[in-house]
Amino acid sequence: MSIVETHNLSFDYIRRDEEGNVSSINRALNDVELAVEKGEFIAILGGNGSGKSTLAKHINAILYPTEGYVMVDGKKTSEEENILSIRQKAGMVFQNPDNQIIGSIVEEDVGFGPENMGVETKGIWERVEESLKTLGMWEYRKHSPMRLSGGQKQRVAIAGVVAMHPECIIMDEPTAMLDPAGRKDVIRAARALNDVEHITIILITHYMEEVIYANRVFVMEKGEIRMTGTPREIFSRLEELEELRLTVPQTTKLAAELKKRGLKEIPDGILTDEELIQSLCRSYLTM
């Protein structure tokens, strides 16, 4: 069964003047069809203003469709009685960790979600321990979040979501404000949550390298889904991606450049260093 499903999803940002009359309508999502299965790792790519974040906010019931519907675990987001259970099932992680952390001590921050859900005290502490350990932040449980690095803060924010035992986590550019080491830690954490805990991950990002491990990639432009496929399929289409303000991982770009300049044996859509090196050794190494 799909954990997240959208059908004919459209959304208009409506702006009103001082008298409350509609002054402009801006269509941010147009007829989006999306089905994410339980346990999948999905990536959504797209240029600035392509509608990625608007889509994410629909899955978490922060925004509601103008047309069509969004279902999370079989429940419509537009029906008010579903909102609490949807927000617990589909947790959200945002770009700026500083805007998501409210506790003055790491473990209190992580305990906030389950406490709000009405989990009894013993259960809260069990969840805090389990989620901080999963994110590799257990040793920092007594620290002040403000003293942590960006990547550590973001992992605390993710632990706070994990403690609510979600089925699905939507990450909206979780690494945009982090340095390379912090980015690696957060992506590794996302992959581990998917692999080990079987939590469905929907990752929105501008960094092509971060999506090579996704099961499927969706590419958005002007509120619509323009491309769908595995990372290998998507990254074989460099020119189309560039038209959509995107690119491919650096390794893929090097492989494509070599192929263009005559090394025809290199396959399309190379994703990792290992693949490129093996392909070069196989076809072009003369001993």
Partner: peptide
Amino acid sequence: TAGLDPEG
């Protein structure tokens, strides 16, 4: 370039 898409 923080937060911009690759073309940006």
